[in-house]
């Protein structure tokens, strides 16, 4: 049976959906490259929650890559998950 390939765009959509449940601003208005902490003022625990949800949703291990000192965005997180899946 052929397994459907998960695309980068699908992962970005998932991250945006998760993020919309955790932050108070309109996620549809942010760019994929906007940095969570530096540009959007997202708190660190929200980022950890997004990592955790992505890890569970896509059944990948992201704990070793979780580093709050490194800039993170929808695009960067999606690429990280995508790289783990492929």
């Amino acid at each position: 049976m052929e397994t459907k390939q998960i695309t980068l765009d699908e992962i970005r959509q998932t991250i945006r959906r998760v993020m919309s449940e955790l932050v108070e601003f309109d996620v549809s208005e942010i760019s994929d490259d906007a940095l969570f902490i530096e540009e959007l003022g997202v708190n660190s625990i929200t980022i950890v929650q997004m990592f955790l949800t992505c890890q569970d949703t896509y059944d990948v291990v992201l704990a070793n890559e979780m580093n709050l000192a490194e800039p993170m965005s929808v695009q960067k997180l999606a690429e990280l998950v995508y790289s783990k899946l492929n």
């Binding site: 950890v48 929650q49 955790l52 949800t53």
Partner: peptide, 11 residues
């Protein structure tokens, strides 16, 4: 709350 936050944040 979703469990796993302690492990994800601190290891």
């Amino acid at each position: 709350l979703k469990k796993g936050l302690v492990r994800m944040l601190t290891g």
